[in-house]
Design a protein around this nucleic acid. Structure first.
Lengths: 340, 340
DNA sequence: TCTATTGATTAGAGCGCTCTAATCTTGTAG
DNA sequence: CTACAAGATTAGAGCGCTCTAATCAATAGA
């Protein structure tokens, strides 16, 4: 288990430790002969530089701290995957933490990341108070994804939840729907923006926004629809639903079908997030897609720019979502739709 | 961005660096007065030990390397989340890599992990050759999840895919089904075992196993069912389907319903993996559940045992999956099922 | 009063590397 | 043959910490 050090390689190659260091960092000022000798010695010994020692000595870090509040959320898992891909290319390593949606746990996690003296930190939808983020940002560059903050030293990357909801509303209105309801995600991340976007888009169309309190789960969607069914007469029922997210949409569809209403013939439903769920042909959910890849890329780039000191002005990316039209939305028909 | 060091804390507290070190590692041999003074100085300066420096000096590591072939796969994301939770409790930090299902990329990722001189490494369903794993295992303890290997220094944690399929078969047979087909996952991880388990379970019941080549996707499930429909007369069609995974099952259900067959009245379908998909009330898929939490826990424990040197014998955990019965399976009825 | 003994504190070497400055080689011009 | 610049190599300090061994202080025993 005891691994060779630079000293060992130097001895075997018959050169100094400093020369080995130069070779390992492929410095141009090493003669071809020595370089070959060192490389061979390293190969024979199975030598590999010690990242931490290197980091200590060079006062630089190749570590990027990543804290994700919940990795089970496919959205964040996707982002992490993209971040890692970019990091590998750029020669960085990810130290990853989960915050479990708990401020205190996140606070600890953040501390752990900082104790690595990382080059930078990316926080995915953190729930810690802004002050904690500000403290971290004084130690190294910090980029926030799916969270905003008023700070001149923190960059943020968000999708425009308001625009996303507006996209859904516009789509439904374009299909002739007038009575449209939003299933609100409550306190979930991004839910507030989605609701705001829904409301203002509806008003823009001169329509009255109907908002039902719900949750970002399928059960939440079911309950919300039941409430709708209990509140409105059949003929007054909204014919278009803008769900808080895809799970919510699926639940809504279940409850609608249970009540004898067909989707999309009687009611059109739009989800949000474009999860793998939505793409299933079985569901073919019309939904709003957040450009995760772009978000990850921009977050990574913003961080690296700061790390390299290429920029000091804060940057706030607000990405435009897009609508993926599938089979749960259709033209509004007075009569209640044609058969399939 | 320049952070205080132990020296700074020592100076402010009026003690030596060594004493600060003792306090930071809460050694019992420090007087209460000094401890308080040091702690206060540290607090005031916002001092935090430098993990890498500590690691270098102490010749120990709190880093656990984790390589996951695909984080987008919810199964692995769940495992990572669990691993991190355990790691945080035990005082370890995760350095995470993704392998992108590519042997060469995985090989690089593995090297990156090793360059941290981690305390141990956990590989989630790696595709690198066994020899590479063996090489890594000579440098630090290695635990494999969802992958087997013949090695005396590597621990493994797997779910018993054969048993899982058998569970599905037993369930269907118990419901009276006799013509049962398996939608094979092809080269996907674990697919071979699931098929073997299916075949032997069927034979055990004195039944002829029917295997249709498919994939672990919904499209794959649809195509497999279409093939089945094209091959068999209606009355000869399998009445039970054991899908390769949940996505596959959903696709199969789509194709069945498209062909006018009802699930579960005409055909019962069992998935595999118990993804969030299966739990949706809309689908309510009967499926096989892999005990992810247990798998993560056992993997972590196995690694820590090795790290602590408490065990040198390899351990091979084979976990028993369980069947989650939901609404896509029902008793076989000669007539083609009762109404709902 | 002096010496053990125990407990608290510190000096200083060293972990594996980088980096600056110094030294050693060449090659070339005078 | 000397001088010197350019290139190649190395010595050695130092990154922030730990850890062993040494030192120091205070109490107890004789």
């Amino acid at each position: 288990m005891v691994r060779p050090t630079m000293e060992d390689v130097a001895a075997r190659a018959g050169v100094s430790r400093a020369l080995v260091s130069l070779v390992m960092n492929n410095s141009p000022k090493v003669s071809a002969a020595r370089r070959a000798a060192v490389l061979r010695a390293a190969e024979e010994l199975g030598y590999q530089p010690h990242v931490m020692a290197r980091s200590l000595a060079s006062r630089t870090s190749t570590v990027l701290g990543v804290m994700v509040n919940d990795l089970r959320n496919a959205f964040f898992a996707d982002i992490v995957e993209e971040l890692d891909t970019a990091a590998q290319v750029a020669g960085f390593d990810l130290v990853l933490n989960t915050g479990g949606r708990s401020p205190t746990r996140e606070w600890n996690a953040l501390h752990n990341l900082l104790s690595f003296r990382p080059a930078g930190i990316i926080l995915l939808s953190p729930v810690v108070p802004a002050s904690a983020i500000q403290v971290a940002a004084k130690q190294c560059p910090v980029v926030l994804v799916s969270r905003t903050i008023r700070s001149s030293i923190v960059d943020t990357v968000n999708d425009d939840g308001e625009a996303g909801s507006a996209l859904a509303v516009d789509h439904l209105v374009g299909l002739g729907h007038r009575r449209i309801a939003h299933l609100d995600g409550g306190g979930a991340a991004g839910a507030a923006q989605r609701r705001r976007g829904f409301e203002s888009a509806m008003r823009q169309h001169g329509l009255e926004p109907v908002v039902v309190r719900s949750e970002h789960t399928d059960i939440g969607g079911e309950n919300a629809v039941r409430e709708l069914l209990a509140t409105y007469e059949r003929r007054e029922l909204p014919t278009g639903l803008v769900a808080g997210n895809d799970f919510n949409a699926v639940g809504a569809i279940s409850a609608l079908e249970e009540a004898g209403l067909r989707v999309p013939e009687d009611v059109s439903v739009v989800g949000y997030d474009n999860t793998s769920l939505a793409a299933l042909r079985h569901l073919s959910l019309t939904t709003v897609d957040q450009p995760r890849k772009d978000m990850a890329r921009l977050a990574f780039e913003a961080l690296i720019e700061r790390v390299r000191g290429e920029r000091t002005e804060p940057v706030r990316h607000l990405l435009h979502p897009s609508l993926v039209v599938r089979a749960t939305t259709a033209e509004f028909s007075q009569t209640g739709g044609a058969a399939r």
